[in-house]
Amino acid sequence: MFPRIGVPGHGELRGLELGDRGPLRQRLTSLVADGTKTATAGRLSEYDDEGEELEHVGERLVLLDDDDRPAGTVVVTAVEIVPFTEVPWAFADAEGEGFTDIDDWRTQHRRFWLRTEGVVVPDDEPIVLIRLRYEP
């Protein structure tokens, strides 16, 4: 399950952990905090595996740092599900990670999911595209 974090004035919110622990999470959290990263993607099957609902527009999430401490809040501004090979470049670019083109985005995401989850992502894998706005 996604972690739940108590936030004064907001009750309990779901936590948002980007990437995996270590340098990648530290970098991604910083990119969100400085406004560079305004989007993130996940495999729909991860939600099913975790028994979690999709994020929804207007939902507030606690951005967690590498030590699972709150690093701010994000507000979900859009959610869409598309097959892996139909993720548009505009979305990939909004992830703010310096991908050179959509093929680079696909390659890097496939490598990440293979490394962290042992999953080979097929072209038709449903991907959840989340747009977000950081609030310190």
Score class of each variant (00 low, 15 high):
residue 1 M to G: 15
residue 2 F to V: 10
residue 3 P to G: 09
residue 3 P to Q: 12
residue 3 P to Y: 07
residue 4 R to E: 04
residue 4 R to M: 02
residue 5 I to L: 06
residue 6 G to I: 03
residue 7 V to A: 00
residue 7 V to K: 00
residue 7 V to H: 02
residue 8 P to R: 13
residue 8 P to D: 05
residue 11 G to K: 02
residue 12 E to H: 01
residue 13 L to M: 06
residue 13 L to R: 01
residue 13 L to E: 06
residue 14 R to L: 10
residue 14 R to A: 09
residue 15 G to W: 14
residue 16 L to Y: 13
residue 16 L to M: 15
residue 17 E to R: 15
residue 17 E to D: 09
residue 18 L to M: 04
residue 18 L to E: 01
residue 18 L to F: 04
residue 19 G to F: 09
residue 19 G to H: 09
residue 20 D to T: 13
residue 21 R to P: 06
residue 21 R to W: 11
residue 21 R to A: 08
residue 22 G to R: 15
residue 22 G to I: 08
residue 22 G to Y: 09
residue 22 G to K: 11
residue 24 L to Q: 14
residue 25 R to P: 06
residue 26 Q to N: 15
residue 26 Q to E: 13
residue 27 R to Y: 12
residue 28 L to G: 03
residue 29 T to W: 04
residue 30 S to D: 14
residue 31 L to T: 04
residue 32 V to Y: 00
residue 33 A to Y: 14
residue 34 D to I: 14
residue 34 D to M: 14
residue 35 G to E: 13
residue 36 T to F: 11
residue 37 K to V: 09
residue 39 A to R: 05
residue 40 T to H: 01
residue 40 T to R: 01
residue 41 A to F: 02
residue 42 G to C: 06
residue 43 R to V: 09
residue 45 S to H: 13
residue 46 E to K: 13
residue 46 E to S: 15
residue 49 D to A: 13
residue 51 G to N: 06
residue 52 E to M: 11
residue 53 E to W: 08
residue 53 E to P: 12
residue 54 L to V: 05
residue 55 E to S: 08
residue 56 H to W: 15
residue 60 R to K: 15
residue 61 L to D: 07
residue 61 L to R: 01
residue 62 V to P: 03
residue 65 D to K: 03
residue 65 D to N: 12
residue 66 D to Y: 11
residue 66 D to E: 11
residue 69 R to T: 12
residue 70 P to W: 02
residue 70 P to V: 03
residue 73 T to E: 05
residue 73 T to A: 02
residue 73 T to F: 06
residue 74 V to M: 00
residue 75 V to P: 08
residue 76 V to F: 07
residue 82 V to F: 03
residue 82 V to D: 08
residue 83 P to M: 02
residue 84 F to C: 00
residue 86 E to W: 01
residue 89 W to N: 00
residue 93 D to F: 01
residue 93 D to R: 10
residue 93 D to A: 08
residue 94 A to W: 03
residue 95 E to Q: 03
residue 95 E to Y: 03
residue 96 G to M: 03
residue 96 G to E: 06
residue 97 E to F: 10
residue 98 G to H: 09
residue 99 F to A: 06
residue 99 F to H: 04
residue 102 I to N: 02
residue 102 I to A: 03
residue 103 D to L: 06
residue 107 T to Y: 04
residue 107 T to H: 09
residue 107 T to Q: 08
residue 110 R to D: 05
residue 110 R to P: 08
residue 111 R to T: 14
residue 113 W to V: 02
residue 114 L to S: 07
residue 114 L to A: 15
residue 115 R to N: 10
residue 116 T to Y: 03
residue 118 G to L: 11
residue 118 G to Q: 14
residue 119 V to C: 07
residue 120 V to K: 05
residue 122 P to L: 04
residue 122 P to D: 12
residue 123 D to F: 10
residue 124 D to Q: 15
residue 124 D to V: 03
residue 126 P to Y: 10
residue 127 I to N: 02
residue 127 I to Q: 03
residue 129 L to S: 01
residue 130 I to C: 11
residue 130 I to N: 08
residue 130 I to A: 12
residue 130 I to E: 15
residue 130 I to W: 07
residue 132 L to I: 13
residue 134 Y to C: 06
residue 134 Y to I: 00
residue 134 Y to H: 14
residue 136 P to M: 11
